[in-house]
Each structure stands twice: as structure tokens, then as C-alpha cells.
Amino acid sequence: MFFLLSVPLVLFSLGVVLARSPVRSALSLVVALFLLAVMFFLLDARMIAALQVIVYAGAIMVLFLFVIMLLNLQHEPVETARPGQRTIAGAFAVVFALVLGAVALRGLPTMPGPGVEVAVTPSFGSVESLAERLFTRHALAFEVTSVLLLGAIVGAVVLARKIPR
């Protein structure tokens, strides 16, 4: 089941990056986000799965598509990379992938493999348990998020408002 989900997930994620047309890119992202939601569901994180669909696949994607349509983007302009930039970037990407791969190879054998059931409490992933964590242990983070959003709104309004003449 895991591989049934993860292979298309990786393929669609690649589609997000590689697609030339922004619309195709955005639609690939929708599918990838949905697949991710199913994965959360399989992990018993039901609340997160629901939020993933509502917030990401729903609200944020609609916003993305609106922007794309409003801007009426046809094709991504051809990017101009400095000579050698691609090679250097590629080299760093390979090194980073090797490091991550090495970590994964060292760590994976110690992880419980597929088919091993990990016991979770019945309330795991429920709205109640999420709310409990959010409003006790992470109460400060929750409040600070509202400050962050307010600051971001002020910043956005400042930058997007019509310039007074």
C-alpha cells in the first residue's frame, strides 16, 4: 500500500518541478497533496489528513490556480542560467543526495519495516488530542502564529497598496 502511494507521489512531485506549463505544475501539486493526505490517513493521523485536503489541496491550490489564471501565464519564460551554474548546482545536489542517502542507509535497518504494526492509543490523530497539544504544550506557538499572521498582513498591505500621489 505504501509503495502504491509513494511511487505516484514522487512522480507527481517531479511533475510539479519539471512541468513547463504552470497549470500542469499546479495540477500535479493537487494530486501530490491528495496522495500525501491518504498517507497521513494510513498513519492514523485522521485530523491531519482532513486538514491536508481542506487547507492545502483545497484553499491554497485554488489560490494558486486563481493567481495563474489572473496573470494569464502561458509559458514559463526561458530561464537564463549563468554558465557553469547548472554544473555547480548539480554537483551540490548530488553531494546532498549522497549525504541523505548515507543517513537513510544507516538509519533504515533500525526502523520497523512495513507490516509491523506500531501500537497507537485510540485517541491518536483525533481532533481532541491535536487540540490538547495545541492549547497546552504549544499554547505560546499558537499565540505567536497570530502575531506572525498580523505582521504578514500589515507587510502585505504596505507593499501592495496603491502608491498615493
Partner: peptide
């Protein structure tokens, strides 16, 4: 406000949020 949060918190989530509060205001 974000800067003070970064210096007074010992929770990585709050430190990160503080950094974002500081940075987003700074970008603007």
C-alpha cells in the same frame, strides 16, 4: 517582537516563529 521571541524562547517552534515574525516584517 519577533527578535525578543527568538532570544527568550527555548522551544524550537517558537524560535522559528519568532524568526519569521522578525523576517517577514524585515522583508516588508
Amino acid at each position: 517582537v519577533g527578535m525578543v521571541l527568538m532570544a527568550t524562547s527555548v522551544d524550537l517552534i517558537v524560535i522559528f516563529l519568532g524568526l519569521e515574525v522578525m523576517s517577514i516584517a524585515a522583508y516588508a
